[in-house]
Nucleic acid binder design. Structure first.
Lengths: 244, 244
DNA sequence: CGGCCTGTTGAAACTGTTCAATTTGTGTGG
DNA sequence: CCACACAAATTGAACAGTTTCAACAGGCCG
């Protein structure tokens, strides 16, 4: 992937977070980003270790996970192309969670110190990056509501709606269908359910005529009812953030 | 409460987030903070409205909530003295959640625009405030793990441990006991449980000899076993953040 | 071809919910 | 100071959603 493709992608991403001055933006992109490829199911960040670089996903998917002592896993976030991986640990002495690749991944990396220095020098960049971390926090809050208070069917429907909205925003989804890059076990780990139950609920949604499935392709067959079942309101994604 | 008390409290808070330059700090405190009192169970922030001021809790407790369409509530965060209320919405055009007082509250407020301007002017302040929002995000991740993957007993035990650690850090808790400023219904809403079940689990923890209770006073009677039952590791609170 | 991961299905078991009633505590007004 | 009202806490019993355990099918990779 040529250098300019990365620049474009990063620029497009930040533009959804704040109105960034072109000069600031080019300073950010002039940083010593290095491209790196990661195989599937590979640790990118490990809990307990100090963050040293910040990754930007160019292609592929990843997730943040936390584990209980007895080995149960909770996927607390899913990262898609255009997401910055280590911003959540930007100012921490050690990471509080792992990041693992969900698919093979192409990313660009920059030393985290350089990013800190740039944020200190350019308030416009800081505001855009900060906003990005705030939006991720907003998604955490919605997930807490989703897991804490919605029954499995609504919970899964909500996840499907969110995925579509986020993939759509980065041109990775059609109007009605998209590819869900997760196994049912991973879906369960993201929603506090067992893989068995995810399977059953998926089939219920299908039987209800809300979605169709083919492998991991999801085709929404009734948007109105899916959104209603999910109690989905995309406000929390703050997609309109930098539009004014 | 005299002006200096507020300054001290804000200074102490930020010192736990980053090493802040004294000059920067005094600029922050020189902002036009106004003191305000809020009665119990009163909305401080409402979902959908644009954030206009940023509050700092001097005394009392509050919580962030999100509601499902059918009125179920999830408490996604509890705020304690020293917490900044509106930082999570700092760069948003509208809030994605409500904030409600848990007890009568004394807070100091500043126009959010002034805070944005100061963050743009003073990178040291920005870093400290940003770190504060990142720590709150880290707590969200732990809560997701807690609600998604731990059974009710561990879940409640974890909440009790977190409360103690956070209150202890602001000198609101003894070594073994503290006051939990929430009803059992609110506790349930914070953990995705019903109030009935919270009651039963609380009694289990008591019967197991892990805690004692008197009204909302919690007395930990066996720290080792409570932490084990909770699978509690305070890393995610990043209490050591600004120590280096 | 064989092995393994993922998905699928059924039956039984269990954790947590729901509904409903009762108790306790606290503040208010008489 | 007592009676009353109301919120919060407590308890029991029936119920439901989700998990657990187990088995099997399908597809992909070495």
């Amino acid at each position: 992937m040529p250098k300019s493709a990365f620049s474009d992608q990063l620029a497009r991403k930040l533009a959804t977070r704040a109105l960034v001055d072109p000069g600031d933006l080019s300073a950010l992109m002039a940083l010593s980003w290095k491209q790196r490829s990661i195989p599937i199911a590979h640790y990118i960040v490990r809990e307990g270790l100090p963050p040293q670089r910040c990754g930007f996903i160019m292609e592929g998917y990843a997730y943040r996970q936390k584990l209980t002592l007895d080995g149960q896993r909770e996927i607390v976030a899913v990262l898609v192309p255009g997401d910055l991986i280590d911003l959540q640990n930007l100012y921490f002495t050690q990471s509080d969670h792992d990041v693992v690749s969900l698919t093979p991944l192409t990313m660009a990396e920059v030393p985290i110190v350089e990013l800190r220095e740039l944020a200190a020098a350019l308030p416009g960049i800081a505001a855009a990056l900060w906003t990005d971390t705030l939006i991720e926090a907003s998604i955490y809050r919605e997930w807490l509501l989703n897991i804490g208070r919605r029954p499995a069917k609504a919970r899964l429907a909500h996840m499907l709606c969110e995925f579509h909205a986020r993939l759509r925003a980065i041109d990775r989804a059609g109007e009605m269908e998209y590819e869900l890059p997760m196994t049912q076990e991973q879906l369960g780990d993201a929603m506090g359910l067992t893989p068995v139950h995810v399977n059953r609920v998926l089939k219920m949604l299908e039987a209800d005529g809300l979605i169709g499935r083919n492998k991991r392709q999801i085709k929404v067959t009734d948007w109105a009812r899916l959104r209603t079942a999910a109690d989905f309101n995309e406000r929390y994604l703050h997609l309109d953030q930098a539009v004014p």
